[in-house]
Write a protein that binds this DNA or RNA. Structure first.
Length: 401
DNA sequence: CCTCCACAGGAAGCGCAGGAGT
DNA sequence: ACTCCTGCGCTTCCTGTGGAGG
């Protein structure tokens, strides 16, 4: 016992981290720099509930890593604390629609908030909904539901209609929705009625700039790392990288976390920019591997063909020198032979072109329209990552060494 | 200048799987 | 348990496009 305690304590003292969780992207800090205004305005709306009035449904949108989820969670936290302190029947529920992507699943989650000991999965949708209405009527509870990644819900219109209609079907209490989405086009998919009820008030979250990211990281570093481990130059470097790429605080945090892990692995007590570079490279390899792993077989075949052609040195040399530029016909020929060789299905050229488009969408390849020097219009494809790396990953898939 | 090539990408339709309705 | 419907992945067919080559 004593020995274990000793070991753990020693490891803890050696660690670059003070509180690993504080660096996690799921952590919601006490202060949300550069989002105070949004937080305040949303709380302004929600405060109506505390005064026993109706509140508007809200809609938050902005790109990934702009603090939407953190603000929404913070709102719920404040709301719950306030309600508890003042003995109000107000509760908050956070639901990530990526995991609960249908009306039914969301409604079950809401019901579980009211009947914690009961499992509703399996009962009919209308029964579950009746139970929710019952509870609202009986207790006069007001529930604020945050629907994160709301665009993932297949029957959003139905869901929102049900939830907002609940308010007119009960005397006391009600359900208020805070929708969160990073899909800017999502709103247009809604029908007019749900659109106007969900988007009673909208909040736009702009991307962070390098300066803002730096401040955010600085605060997290203070919470998560031991003093003196991460220098200002390192923070500046990571912020600049993230700002350049998309102003995504989430990516910046992940890189920061990874950097800490890499430092710990190599038992460093201080983090330098080289460690960041190392961590970034590793993240990229992990990213590619995981992206490739989830790819359907045919897509993998196409990607494999592209990397093989790159390695074999066919195609026209790209501007960068390293990467080759390939025409779709060329890739299709290789793909067809490869698929035959592995006795896999060979898809038509038309479908093959769709695959190329999708791989491009995933940013695994880069495509552009051909200009002069090529007959007619073709798509010029080059690989977005290291061809050898991709070949290595896919070799295991197709040829079991 | 015209034709041909090497494609792009839309439209229609087919077979299948899985969910909804009865 | 049954059919019906729908979405999906795919093929086939087709029209359009723009530089190459005669």
């Amino acid at each position: 016992m004593r020995l274990l305690e000793d070991i753990v304590e020693k490891k803890r003292r050696k660690s670059v981290f003070k509180d690993r969780d504080a660096i996690s992207i799921h952590f919601v800090p006490e202060r949300l720099p550069f989002r105070e205004r949004q937080l305040r305005e949303i709380l302004e709306e929600v405060s109506e509930l505390a005064l026993d009035k109706k509140a508007n449904n809200l809609f938050l949108y902005g790109k990934i890593g702009t603090g939407k989820t953190a603000v929404a969670k913070k709102v719920l936290r404040e709301l719950r604390e306030f309600a508890e302190k003042n003995r109000l029947r107000i509760s908050g529920k956070y639901i990530n629609c990526k995991n609960y992507n249908t009306k039914y699943k969301v409604i079950c989650r809401v019901a579980e908030e009211f009947y914690p000991s009961k499992r509703f999965f399996g009962f009919s949708s209308s029964y579950v909904f009746e139970k929710i209405l019952d509870f609202l009527n009986k207790n006069g509870t007001k529930l604020v539901v945050v629907l994160d990644e709301i665009d993932k819900v297949k029957d959003v219109d139905d869901l929102l209609y049900k939830l907002t209609r609940a308010n007119s079907d009960v005397e006391k209490g009600g359900i208020y929705v805070i929708g969160v989405s990073n899909n800017l086009l999502f709103k247009n998919r809604l029908n007019m009625q749900t659109k106007s009820s969900l988007c009673e008030r909208e909040f736009v979250f702009p991307p962070y700039n390098a300066h803002e990211l730096e401040k955010i990281l600085l605060e997290r570093v203070g919470l998560g790392f031991r003093e003196g481990v991460v220098g200002g130059d390192v923070i500046r470097y990571i912020s600049a990288l993230a700002a350049q790429e998309s102003g995504d605080a989430r990516r910046a945090l992940i890189l920061l976390q990874k950097t800490g892990e890499v430092a710990e692995e190599s038992s460093l007590h201080e983090i330098t920019i080289d460690v960041v570079k190392n961590a970034k490279e590793r993240m990229e390899v992990e990213l590619i591997s995981s992206m490739i792993a989830t790819l359907p077989k045919q897509h993998k075949l196409v990607l494999y063909s592209i990397s093989m052609l790159n390695i074999k040195g066919s195609g026209i040399k790209g501007i960068s020198g390293e990467k080759r530029v390939l025409t779709s016909g060329e890739i299709y020929d290789y793909y067809r032979n490869l698929a035959k060789e592995l006795s896999l299905n060979v898809v038509s050229l038309r479908q093959f072109k769709e695959y190329l488009n999708e791989l491009n969408l995933y940013n695994l390849i880069e495509t552009r329209a051909s200009g002069a020097g090529f007959r007619g219009t073709t798509t010029l494809t080059s690989i977005a990552f290291n061809a050898f790396q991709i070949k290595e990953i896919l070799d295991k898939e197709f040829f079991d060494f």
